[in-house]
Write a protein that binds this DNA or RNA. Structure first.
Length: 775
DNA sequence: TCTATGTCTACTAAT
DNA sequence: TAGACATAGA
């Protein structure tokens, strides 16, 4: 807030008084970034260098100096959380006028534009947004229609390839034209049909949101001009994570490729750090930030290297890890806040041992006034959270997992949202087919296939085909099926009518009630269904809260909101008092006083699937860099010598990233795991310590993994009864029987047993409640 | 058509 | 290990 003194002069225009205050406390580079005007600006912002401060102050400064009006500003981020934080911080600088800016994610900005310009897209304004699961479901249906063998042509792979196409702005026609192999041709064909199906359902997948906005702006000059006139200041956060489609979207918004003299290019600011680019797998390309000066020839670049977050020891470790990446723009973080504590290392025997160490360490940190809310634990893959959760439950430490099985991916939530989408968009085939027989209403595979075939033959949506069926236009449906269809159809229509003047929460109640969804769950004796009801109550709370924050928000707005929420959006604010567990990807952009980077093994981090490829390995290294630079005061690096995946224990060598860190910044509590020390008496002992030049090679990793793969369930074998043909047995529910045949041995043994009345059962002896009768 | 049971396969990362 | 899918029997 500006000091009150500046108001007293009376002479000074209000704006410039504010402006000066905004520059106070900035370092020279930050000052330069905030005050630069005219040409496109690239801010290369190292981790913790005050990036958000620069962005928010730059916006506020432009407003304060009268160079911009709030409604001329669009600031784009990748997560809603980042957007919310930015809006909040700008608001604290400039007051309520901040509400007139667009501060949002790429995806929600696009939805907003598409819903507004739906006539030119063209699409229904209440179009549905499909998440990855929905998209894969639709692709699976498409592949089925093409009669593709799912083993040879994997729908998931197809879905991924289509996503890649869209991120590159490649249309189905382009894809068909450039297809060489049969496989590529099949993909191109599936892509075309998949897109047709989306269009018919009035739906878009995540990638469409960007691609179709770009197409909208490119193909409709008058629409493009509207937005260019409006957005005179375009700011993009995390620019290193943009893919080609997003890059083109920014260009289109700025007007960089437009000769239209009526609207000069907008003022563009991008902020990013190529060392933190970790989304190549979804099409992001570092090229965009590295070539910014070529893309925008008169661009100005500012580099922020002073770090205000971490201690020097932490930065030294992070710098050492990232410096192994070839061809990066030289950049070295530094701080003037002192060395701080050393990085602490620990080599555990297993993932359970690792979890134990982490828990006990957090426990003892409490004596130094470190609270659980100050601590975060990172891992490479979601599955790693389990061992940690187990120990926290056992020790009673409060924790919270961010991501993983996400709220909006739960079955019951997806079902409920499918109902809502079916209400809002009667042509949404994926959603309607999802709930067609949920809860069970006697509409099985056959009914679905008949309706779907009719829809296909008449080129109408699945929803329209249901209406046709109810009108008696589809022959060959049993009376019982017709009744079920009529009821289903009536349910949707009734709720649709109700929905015209009801809030999202009320509509949700109505549809869950009228469809019998909640009643079915309540009647179930599956204990899981109890928590499902609770989750639906939670969804209701979300809908009710939505109405509070957005009194005019209709069902479409609500669906838009929930379609685009991200994992990171649910991160608790500051001191929720819980330990935070999440993947490194989710951790980007956050910071914590104490950080545990766990699973530092070759094969886990870097991930086994990235180890053989130089560019993927480089991305893993950037990911490690992100992990390390989240820590403010204390950083722990832990690894497990043995880790189980799919119930199979594997031995894993230390991560190569550990070897890169200078010895003098690490304090090893335990450098060699117990099992390794034992092993090293019979093998070369120096191999397992790092700092001694050991770098695990891929072939080593593989061999060790194979050797460590041992089945873990053999103790059951002794309790399996030994049977042979002719033996009499007693089964808990089938009663008395005679063994006809036994196949397989021990653990895999299966017996065919005749229980009389011609009832021959095949029973897994491992599980069957079977007693051998003597005599 | 539904349900239970057994079998198969998958764990990168996520807007 | 677990969830997704196939199959058989009711």
């Amino acid at each position: 807030m500006p000091p009150s003194a500046v108001w007293e002069s009376g002479e000074v225009p209000e704006a410039s008084a504010d402006a000066d205050a905004l520059l106070a406390g900035l370092n020279p580079q930050q000052h330069e970034a905030v005050t630069h005007t005219g040409s496109p600006l690239l801010v290369v912002a190292g981790a913790g260098s005050g990036k958000t401060k620069v962005l928010t102050h730059r916006i506020a400064y432009a407003l304060a100096t009268g160079r911009a009006r709030a409604d001329q500003v669009i600031a784009i981020t990748f997560t809603n959380k980042a957007a919310a934080e930015m809006r909040e911080r700008v608001r604290s600088l400039v007051g309520p006028q901040a509400n007139r800016m667009w501060v949002s994610t790429f995806h929600s900005a696009c939805v907003r534009i598409l819903r507004r310009e739906y006539r030119d897209v063209p699409i229904r304004s209440t179009f549905s947004v499909y998440d990855m699961q929905d998209a894969q479901r639709l692709m699976a249906l498409t592949c089925k229609r093409l009669n593709l063998d799912p083993k040879q042509f994997n729908p998931k792979l197809f879905s991924r390839r289509v996503s890649d196409f869209k991120n590159e702005l490649i249309t189905p026609a382009d894809a068909a034209a450039q297809a060489r192999t049969d496989f590529e041709k099949k993909i191109a064909e599936a892509y075309r049909l998949y897109n047709d199906a989306l269009q018919q359902a009035h739906a878009m997948d995540f990638d469409d949101l960007i691609m179709r906005t770009v197409q909208l702006l490119q193909n409709n000059p008058q629409v493009a001009r509207t937005y260019r006139r409006r957005f005179r200041h375009v700011l993009v956060d995390e620019y290193q994570d943009t893919n080609h489609a997003q890059y083109m979207l920014v260009r289109a918004l700025v007007g960089a490729d437009d000769d239209d003299a009526g609207v000069p290019p907008a003022e563009l600011t991008v902020v990013g750090d190529s060392d933190q680019s970790i989304y190549a797998f979804r099409g992001a390309t570092i090229r965009n930030i590295e070539e910014f000066e070529k893309d925008y020839p008169d661009a100005h670049t500012v580099v922020l290297e002073q770090n205000y977050r971490s201690t020097q020891n932490i930065l030294s470790a992070a710098n050492a890890v990232i410096s192994a990446n070839a061809g990066r723009r030289a950049k070295r973080l530094w701080t003037d806040s002192g060395d701080g504590a050393k990085v602490i290392g620990y080599a555990a025997d297993s993932e359970h041992d690792e979890a134990r160490f982490i828990a006990s360490e957090i426990d003892s940190l409490a004596t130094e006034n470190v609270k659980p809310g100050d601590v975060a634990i990172f891992y490479r893959t979601n599955a790693q959270s389990r061992a940690l959760e187990e120990i926290f439950i056992r020790t009673g430490l409060p924790y919270r997992v961010v991501g993983g099985t996400r709220f909006y991916e739960r079955k019951e939530i997806k079902d409920a949202l499918a109902y809502l989408r079916a209400i809002a968009n009667p042509d949404d085939s994926v959603s309607i087919r999802r709930i067609f027989n949920t809860p069970r209403r006697g509409l099985g595979d056959k009914a679905e296939a008949t309706v779907a075939a009719y829809a296909h033959d008449h080129d109408i949506s699945f929803g329209a085909a249901i209406a046709a069926a109810v009108d008696g236009d589809i022959p060959g449906l049993a009376p019982r099926t017709m009744n079920a269809l009529r009821d289903f159809h009536a349910t949707l229509n009734e709720v649709r009518e109700f929905a015209t003047d009801a809030s999202p929460a009320e509509i949700l109640d109505a549809v869950l009630d009228r469809s019998g969804y909640v009643a079915t769950l309540r009647a179930s004796d599956d204990p899981q269904d109890e928590s499902r009801v609770e989750n639906l109550a939670e969804l209701h709370a979300v809908a009710a809260e939505f109405r509070e924050t957005q009194p005019d928000g209709d069902l479409g707005d609500f669906l838009e909101r929930v379609a685009l929420v991200a994992d990171s959006d649910s991160i608790p604010d500051d001191d929720a008092g819980q330990i935070t567990l999440m993947t490194v990807h989710t951790a980007k952009g956050l910071e914590f006083p104490v950080v545990f980077a766990s699973g530092m093994e070759d094969g886990t981090f870097p991930h086994a699937r990235s180890i053989d490829d130089a560019s993927q390995l480089a991305e893993e290294r950037r990911l490690a860099y992100v992990a390390l630079t989240r820590a403010r005061e204390r950083l722990y690096l832990t690894r497990a010598a043995v880790r189980s995946a799919w119930g199979m224990p594997q031995q894993l060598p230390p991560s190569r990233f550990l070897a890169a860190i200078p010895e003098e910044v690490v304090d090893w509590r335990r450098e060699v795991a117990g099992a390794e020390a034992f092993r090293s008496t019979s093998e070369t002992s120096s191999r397992l310590s790092f700092g001694s030049g050991y770098r695990p090679k891929t072939s080593d990793t593989r061999r060790v993994q194979r050797a460590g793969a041992v089945r873990a369930t053999e103790k059951d074998e002794e309790t399996i009864p030994s049977l042979e043909a002719g033996v009499r047995v007693l089964h808990d529910s089938y009663g008395l029987g005679t063994v006809l045949e036994v196949t397989g041995q021990g653990w895999r043994a299966v017996a065919s047993v005749d229980f009389g009345d011609g009832a021959v059962k095949k029973l897994m002896l491992r599980y069957a409640p079977l007693t051998k009768l003597d005599v």
